[in-house]
Design a protein around this nucleic acid. Sequence first.
DNA 1: ATCCCAATATATACTGAGTATATTTAAGGG
DNA 2: CCCTTAAATATACTCAGTATATATTGGGAT
Lengths: 212, 212
Amino acid sequence: MDEKDDRRTRKRLATRQSISDTATRLFLERGFDSVTIDEIAAAADVGRMTVFNHFPRKEDMFFDREEEIQALAFDAIRKRGPGVSPIEATRKLAHDLVTQDHEFVMLSGDTSWFIKTAMASEALKARAREMRDDFTRALAIVLADTSNQPTGDPNAHLAAGLIVSTWNVAFSEAQKLFDRTRDAGEAKRCFLAVIDRGTAGAAAALAKTAYA
Amino acid sequence: MDEKDDRRTRKRLATRQSISDTATRLFLERGFDSVTIDEIAAAADVGRMTVFNHFPRKEDMFFDREEEIQALAFDAIRKRGPGVSPIEATRKLAHDLVTQDHEFVMLSGDTSWFIKTAMASEALKARAREMRDDFTRALAIVLADTSNQPTGDPNAHLAAGLIVSTWNVAFSEAQKLFDRTRDAGEAKRCFLAVIDRGTAGAAAALAKTAYA
DNA sequence: ATCCCAATATATACTGAGTATATTTAAGGG
DNA sequence: CCCTTAAATATACTCAGTATATATTGGGAT
């Protein structure tokens, strides 16, 4: 009863999409902080409350694909091959994403406007940190779950923390390098180098546990 | 000319302390989010703008010792013994803080109200995440600096990320355990166990670099 | 003392995100 | 064609934070 294909649902999604598109355009034109909700509502030709109806927080209009990213990681862990540790599965995921030039890696001129716009706003950086925390918590649960360990196992939280920290550093260092050199190949090598180092560290930390 | 001991400075600091004390009391009584700046100003018998004069953000009235904590860590790294790696120095710091029951470790009933109040507020959690990020960035600089590596060395950022992540998990897991068992000794052992594991991982990740 | 300067405190008015609530509009289902 | 309900909207509010102008008060000089 949730994903019905009736006109009501179509209209709701159309309205949502229209707001999202309008907001994204304005954010890129003038920066996140200097666009107000009222402007977005006016530009999308909807009432102010309709905006909050679809996006409880202003930041939700910018980060609209959190769940997809989480699902990508959790799938990689859940569907890993036999004999592959969860930590190794995250390393493999990083390499796969880079070799198939996945859009989420965003090491190209096409997508770095997204990073730049996000990094220019304290509010968006705060939301990104919150998402990172939520992801870390959820990752710990998935790790424990797929390794037959009790929920809340401290080692699962340590593993999740080290992995997320590694990915975070890998992303930001690769992005910095790309900004400096405009060389996507070099940036990708940097990304994977950090991933490999960090993952090796996580594996060492979790040696003799179910996670490595 | 900054830390003059004249009456003007004494009055300014007294006003600041009065606001801080009043705010802390109200936060603990009724929770951070349900205390307004106006109430704090009224209770401290100062004008509203005076509050913002001393504390640009509401959260600054709660977290008032960020610099002390950072200095503690940076001193431990800067003043480490010869032949001690920076990563090992952070491990040693953790053990020292626990054995001398330092107030910042806060694994006792006296201080956990602080954690509880902070964790009950999204705004305070967001500020804590921001402080964590700032600290990680500063730590990377100190690590590179005291290891004669170039500023911005990716390995320094990886080391900083892994260390901070480890401490973060150690704190929260120990806190959770203390809440469950009310056994400070057990909580401390958990704290140090996570620290040792995570630090070993960081050292492994940074093997053959200047940081381990 | 008294005059001047600068730091601090304060008053007033504003912006903008987010909430609460009531009302209207329009789609689906009998 | 009604009836129910989801979605959109209008209005009014709270509160943090900013801008700016003014008042107060301590320190330093003559």
